[in-house]
Amino acid sequence: MFCASTFALGAAPAQAADQENGQATVSVLHGIPGLTVDVYANGQQLLPDFQPGTLTDPQPLPAGSYDIKVFKDNEGPNGAPALQKQVQVPGGANATLVAHLGADGSPMLSAFVNDTVPIAAGKARVTVRHVAAAPAVDVRANGTPVFSNLTNPKEAKGDVDAGMIKADVTLAGSSTVALGPADLNLTEGTNTIVYAYGSANDKTLALKTQSITGMHSAPGGVPAGESGAAATAGAGGESGTPGWVIGLAAAGAVGVAVGGYRVAAMRR
């Protein structure tokens, strides 16, 4: 079985580091149901027996270029990988690499940069990532759509008042619930990242939550809530994007006005 401590990208071969200084922080999510895999980076096995639905703890990683290969369990490293992607990791980045199904059900790898820009006092950030073999969806908070027509493999994010919300995911333009509802406790100064993964046709849709903390904009902010719970969510408030975001995955910020809020949808 996979143990988070076995994820040691920081121990990858020294030649992986390029001219950039510093380290990145990287997590890996396995979002392909029914497939146990082994993950390699630059020829070194990093995640043996990696189970579906597992999210590693964040680990330090030297900046550089990494050849990521994902093999069916015990078929690497000399066989044909099920997935392969060259990932450029800039120093200082906080990122998550996701093995998941595309909209058509084919396996793919996507790299996401996690937004760590400071958050205003009393606010929390929500990021929703569609990495499931499923059609476009809307994300609702307390019954109101706040992220609309989100498609695989894109994300939407926004800053909201810290506290509890009830959230669910519906098929785009309808009230047909695909996932949820669930209560989500959004903590001040935290980016709660929710992944919708699996397959709609195979009835394996599921949620995974990742929490990025420590983004309080100033001391003495208004406390609200505790650690985030596993669910989906969304709401408004346009948030900034780190300048190095393009180094990991080409992205353009597109403002989307929804229900009186303004959110940022990152196109990939």
Rank of each mutant, 00 (worst) to 15 (best):
N191K: 02
G189V: 15
L9P: 15
A111D: 07
G240F: 04
V37L: 15
S227A: 14
A229N: 07
V146L: 15
L47E: 04
P219L: 13
A178T: 04
A41C: 05
K72W: 06
R267C: 00
Y66T: 00
F50R: 00
N185V: 04
A162C: 07
N142L: 03
V139L: 13
H130K: 05
H130L: 03
R268V: 10
A167M: 01
T151F: 05
L9E: 04
K203P: 03
N74Y: 14
V139T: 04
V117G: 01
L55T: 04
F147R: 08
L205K: 13
T116R: 14
E188F: 02
A93K: 11
N142A: 03
A63S: 11
N42S: 15
A136E: 09
R268I: 06
A99G: 15
A182M: 09
A167E: 00
I32E: 14
D38Q: 13
A264N: 14
A249Q: 10
A120D: 13
G76N: 06
Q86Y: 02
L9H: 09
P48V: 09
F112V: 12
A265M: 09
A17I: 06
K72T: 12
T116A: 09
N42T: 06
A99P: 01
Q210C: 06
Q86K: 09
D159S: 09
L46M: 15
D202Q: 15
A136C: 12
E155L: 12
S174F: 03
S211V: 10
M266S: 12
G198N: 11
H30G: 07
A264M: 15
Y66D: 08
I246D: 06
T36P: 02
G236C: 05
V126L: 03
A230K: 05
M215V: 05
A231V: 00
G225T: 05
A229I: 05
L248D: 00
V146C: 11
D159M: 08
G214Y: 04
A80V: 13
Q84S: 15
P33N: 08
Q15D: 13
Q59S: 06
Q51G: 03
L179C: 09
